[in-house]
Computed example of a mutant assay.
Amino acid sequence: MANLPQSLSINAPFAAAGSSAQNAAAASQANKDHKMASVEHLILQLSNPDLRENALLELSKKRELFQDLAVAPLLWNSFGTIAALLQCVASHPDTKMLFLNAHIPLYLYPFLNTTSKSRPFEYLRLTSLGVIGALVKQVDDTEVISFLLSTEIIPLCLRTMEMGSELSKTVATFIVQKILSDDVGLDYICTAAERFFAVGRVLANMVASLAEQPSSRLLKHIICCYLRLSDNPRACAALRNCLPDMLRDATFSSCLREDPTTRRLLQQLLHNVEVNRMPPL
């Protein structure tokens, strides 16, 4: 057997075939690893507003190449990607109304309706609020405000303002503030006593909570809500009796000392409702 030519050796063909198969498998794995690294890099770029458009374009071009890489789970599980994509569509003027006409925000509302305070639900709540916040971020967008009011966003925001984390409360209060900044939103809240007092009760409870755990950013949004409510004559008259005393005294002096803008807003509010001004810091 040892004297046979190599071409007739029974081991040579099998050895060559085995080596070729291993090389092919290694090359295939290397190619898959390269494509996976490319996908991961593009997904990371989705969180950067400056790189997002190109990353989306590249992912779209190569979607056929990526089918075997489970890109969907990568997108779903990568931090902030889904929220970034939804917020991008919700905030862009060319896609905002398409986003609303498709009623996509309604799919987020169940996450705002939950009362669970566990971390996974809080993340879902915050992501959903971020999308709604992107919708209302632009001023003078009555169509957006009208849509949100017609789908009962106010009770959902009030629920989050009562039981969410500090960050969720801040975003939810920002949304209410932006809704109030539009005349349609202000009228909606102030023409029905139960709506006004529901908003006022939640804002007052938040003020009381902030006295124990201060947050300058959240306090500013609360004061902005009160200030806008004071633009309505009936609401302003009601605020003379229901504005929290903690906003009238020196409870938040330490917060306001470092935030002259919020202090000025509060002074304007107190002036509007004709109550005593705050004592000097």
Rank of each mutant, 00 (worst) to 15 (best):
P5Y: 15
I10D: 15
A12K: 11
A15E: 11
G18A: 15
G18W: 13
G18I: 11
S20G: 09
N23V: 09
A37Q: 02
S38T: 04
E40A: 13
I43A: 07
I43T: 09
L44Y: 07
Q45M: 10
Q45W: 02
S47Y: 12
N48L: 14
D50C: 15
L51P: 04
L59E: 12
S60W: 06
E64L: 05
L69C: 13
F79L: 13
G80V: 09
I82N: 15
I82S: 06
H92R: 12
K96V: 11
L100R: 01
A102R: 11
H103K: 04
H103C: 01
I104S: 01
L108P: 00
T115R: 01
S116R: 06
K117Q: 08
S118L: 01
R119H: 12
P120F: 02
F121L: 04
T127W: 14
G133Y: 08
A134E: 06
Q138S: 12
V139G: 15
V139C: 15
E143L: 03
F147V: 03
F147S: 01
L148S: 01
L148N: 06
L156T: 00
L158Y: 00
G164V: 07
S168N: 04
T170K: 13
A172V: 03
T173W: 10
V176Y: 12
V176R: 02
I179T: 08
D182F: 00
D182Y: 04
D183R: 07
C190S: 08
A192G: 06
R201W: 02
A208K: 12
R217P: 13
K220Q: 04
D231Y: 09
A235K: 00
C236F: 01
A237Y: 06
L239K: 05
R240G: 11
R240I: 02
C242H: 03
P244E: 04
D249H: 08
F252T: 05
F252K: 04
S253L: 08
L256I: 06
R257A: 08
E258G: 10
E258P: 04
P260C: 08
T261I: 15
Q268Y: 10
L270F: 01
E274P: 05
